[in-house]
Amino acid sequence: MKKTSRYENFLKKTLITAGAVLIFILNSLWHSGEISAIPKILQNPQLQVFTMIVAAILLEALPFILIGALISGIMEVLIPGEKIQKIFSGNSFLHTIGSPFLGMFFPVCSCGNVVLAKRLLKKGAAPSGVITYMLAAPIINPVTILATFLAFSASKEVVLGRILIAFAVSVITPFILKRFLKEGILKERTGEIYCEENHKSFSKIEKIFHHAEVDFLIMGKYLVLGAIIAALFQTFVPRAAFLSLANNKILAVFLMEALGISLSLCSFADAFVASSFTNLPVVSKIIFMVAGPMANITVAILYFGTFKKKFVIRLLLAVFFAALILGFAGAAVTGG
């Protein structure tokens, strides 16, 4: 309790200071007769690009969050927990191996999948299968596979390489985190106490939309935060200079993975961006297309909004290192 109030005090002081600075700046502009400079400030290229990217990420991802939230609501109200437990249980090894391919039936981007994963866990699905599904579905789905196929001119090596590495990372990660999965990984929420109380007099349709709304309001603000951080990176870090460092195949794998995580591109689009880096080794591009959808900034922030903090840190590290090691191995075997 003390920790929270100290944190809150810090935030309050920061906001008050920022407000005071803003008022001071506006006052100075007013008195110096330069208030007309404001439209010019708003035309600043950095501010324009930053705003454009924040809005673009949100306008693209928000419908998928809403669709994911609605399906999550339907799942909560209409599908009994036992059915979900049946699909995501049984032989743990078999369901972990089968889970990566569930995205083939439901092609939703990473953001929508996090909402669904949360609902599956709440309905009692086995965490290892859900985590595998959540990591793999944005990549192993028909839309992303087709996009990769088109972007790399029907290169079977790239398409298969991406599917295989995504499959491997999504299966290895819950295996590494096996011990922590037993502890309960979902964040606890107080908001849903009201949700339960309000449910008593709701019709089924109202219940579905009420659940969808709770998910949207929770995940939406994390999506906003993720979009802001990703846009800051895209605005201020020069991509070209970043890639000029990738002068050997091992370093290229590392840098492309870091770039994939930082850019926060949708998995339906990242193949076209990856293929435009013509001088880089193929394996590094595949790692860019695997680590990006699984652990990019926007998705990571959504993970923090859904799972316990310690689990998210372990999850991100496991994905990062599993992809990196597989990338190094791939580069060593194929020669780049």
Partner: peptide, 25 residues
């Protein structure tokens, strides 16, 4: 408030202009 217009030279410089199309393009 900002009303972004379009991506400018600044964005092109940060991303690096390419004359190479992806194979599928």
């Amino acid at each position: 408030i900002v009303r972004p217009g379009n991506l400018s030279s600044f964005a092109a410089m940060k991303r690096g202009i390419t004359g190479e199309l992806a194979a599928g393009e």
